[in-house]
Simulated scan of single mutants.
Amino acid sequence: MIRLTQFEFYKIITRKSIGIALSILIVFLVVYSFWRHPGIMDGSAFYKPYEGAITTEKVKVAHNQYDSIWDSTKGRYQYGALYDIVFFSPEAIKNSTRYDDHGNIMERTVNVSEIYYNKPWGYLLEYIDQFGVVFMMIMILLGLAPVFTEEYVLGTASLLRSSKRGKSKLVSAKCIASILYVVMCAVLFTGVNLVLYWLRFGNLAGADTSIQSVGMYVYSFDYEFSPYTFTAFQYYLVQLFTHIAGSLVFASIVLLVSVLSSTSFIAIITNTVIVGLPYLAFDVLNLNSGSLKWVEKFSISTMIRVTGLYQTPINYSLFGLNMSYLTLYIVVMAFITVSTILATYLIFHSREVFS
Rank of each mutant, 00 (worst) to 15 (best):
L256V: 08
G290W: 05
K74Y: 06
I2V: 05
L29M: 13
I314C: 04
L285Y: 11
S210V: 15
N322V: 13
A157V: 01
W35D: 04
R108Y: 08
S261P: 00
D67W: 04
G320H: 14
S226G: 04
Y217N: 10
D42N: 14
I253W: 01
V284H: 02
I274F: 10
P49C: 09
H37I: 12
V59S: 06
V61K: 13
I128E: 12
M106F: 01
N118V: 00
T272P: 02
N193L: 12
S44N: 06
R200I: 10
N286I: 14
A334N: 02
F233A: 13
S226L: 02
Y10H: 01
Y50C: 03
K58A: 07
L240F: 15
K297L: 15
L196H: 05
I268H: 02
Y10W: 04
R351Q: 05
G132C: 09
K11Q: 14
A186Q: 04
F34G: 01
Y217R: 07
Y329K: 11
A45K: 12
L309I: 11
V259F: 02
C175Q: 09
G246Y: 00
Y316T: 15
A145E: 04
Q65T: 14
Y316W: 15
W121K: 05
S178L: 03
G103Y: 09
A232K: 00
A343E: 04
F28E: 03
A267Q: 05
S289H: 02
I341D: 00
H243S: 04
P38E: 08
Y99L: 13
G276P: 05
G191A: 10
F298T: 14
T312D: 12
A53V: 13
A232M: 04
A177P: 07
F131G: 00
L159A: 10
Y279I: 03
F354M: 12
D42W: 00
F265M: 14
V86R: 11
S258Y: 08
S158N: 07
L159P: 04
L292D: 10
M303K: 02
W121I: 08
D67N: 12
Y325C: 10
P120M: 08
G290P: 01
S299Y: 05
S96E: 15
L237D: 01
D129M: 10
S317G: 11
I2A: 04
Q311F: 08
E8V: 07
T302A: 15
K94C: 01
G122I: 13
F189L: 10
F233N: 08
Y279N: 07
M136P: 05
P90D: 12
L160A: 09
G320S: 12
V183D: 11
V171H: 04
A62K: 01
R36I: 05
K11R: 14
T263F: 11
L204P: 03
R200C: 07
N104K: 14
Q234I: 09
F28L: 13
L248R: 02
I115W: 03
P146S: 03
A173S: 13
P38M: 06
R15C: 11
M1G: 02
Q65M: 12
T307K: 11
Y228H: 12
R161S: 03
L342Y: 03
G43F: 12
